[in-house]
């Protein structure tokens, strides 16, 4: 057979409410590798896609935050399992998107799988570490537990397309929040492919919503959205403009969102993450319970 097989190119789509729609704008933008060679088209998400994603996340919130921590752990572990089964594919995606060698890309995928497992273990242990029984002066049992904040917007890190994404997304959903993630504008493809992993991992539709598109066109709408309870600015711009950390913080202040500021330089995502990111998107709930007579 000397015939050349026709290329079957993948149409990358958004992931909103458990479905894979195209952007409502109908537009796409060309994604290139680090040497400016074209890779694929990614959907050019708009503020309306972000709005739809927030609606989906809000709808999924009662179910996900109300699920038992143990159940959330199982689901997160399932994500790790599904990702493990596709590590070759993701090694290719990450290698192309980040311009790293294949071995390095594979190591990064493995680290992402391990990170999902790590957070899966934390879901039913965080309360013991961050919460506690408080000694009070009265006949009450009094204890404090961390609870989910609500709908969290996440601006994914710009460079680390899969490990970075995992490191910011997993802690948000582990505690029961639902997430609207804006993938890295330059390297969105691994994130969009990762949505396919989420779709087959028992993650209820709407718990994670993935968008791709220009940071400056989508992020300000998420930051100002009145129905978003917190925002992780990991992928925000450090130069002045509408997508800068400063402007997004100002937009987020209007409904007193929780804001997680990014470090000045994208961190080394392979380092031990600690529980900081999980606790950034939780609220302390204290219960007083009468004891005795």
């Amino acid at each position: 057979m000397s015939e050349t097989r026709l290329a079957v190119n993948k149409t990358y789509k958004l992931y909103i409410g458990g479905a894979f729609p195209r952007s409502e704008s109908g537009r796409v933008y060309a994604v290139t590798d680090t040497k400016d060679r074209p890779l694929a088209n990614a959907p050019r998400g708009t503020r309306k896609d972000a709005r739809d994603a927030v609606v989906a996340a809000r709808k999924a919130y009662p179910g996900w935050s109300g699920a038992t921590a143990f159940n959330r752990g199982q689901v997160l572990y399932r994500v790790a399992e599904m990702l493990e089964g596709r590590r070759e594919q993701f090694a290719d995606e990450v290698s192309a998107a980040e311009g790293v060698g294949r071995n390095k890309a594979l190591a990064s995928v493995d680290a992402a799988v391990d990170r999902w497992v790590w957070y899966a273990g934390w879901t039913d242990k965080l309360a013991q570490v961050a919460g506690g029984a408080n000694p009070v002066a009265g006949p009450y049992a009094n204890w404090t537990t961390p609870e989910a904040t609500g709908v969290v917007a996440v601006l994914a890190p710009r460079k680390s397309s899969l490990l970075g994404l995992t490191s910011v997304l997993a802690p948000v959903v582990a505690t029961g929040n639902t997430a609207v993630v804006l993938a890295s504008e330059q390297a969105p493809l691994p994130a969009l492919a990762f949505a396919e992993v989420l779709a087959v991992s028992d993650v209820p539709g709407g718990v994670v919503n993935l968008l791709s598109g220009p940071l400056a066109e989508v992020a300000p709408w998420l930051a100002a959205h009145q129905d978003v309870n917190a925002i992780d600015l990991a992928g925000a711009s450090h130069t002045a403009g509408v997508a800068s950390v400063r402007d997004l913080e100002i937009a987020a202040a209007d409904n007193l969102k929780r804001v997680l500021r990014p470090e000045a330089k994208e961190p080394d995502w392979t380092a031990d993450p600690g529980v900081g990111r999980m606790l950034a998107f939780t609220e302390a709930r204290t219960v007083w319970h009468p004891t005795g007579n």
């Binding site: 503020r47 709408w221 100002a224 009145q226 129905d227 978003v228 937009a251 209007d254």
Partner: peptide, 14 residues
């Protein structure tokens, strides 16, 4: 109506 007046998306909390 909030959205048109303020320029940002509103939510069911309001």
């Amino acid at each position: 109506r909030h959205k048109l007046a303020t320029g940002r998306y509103s939510g069911p909390d309001y």
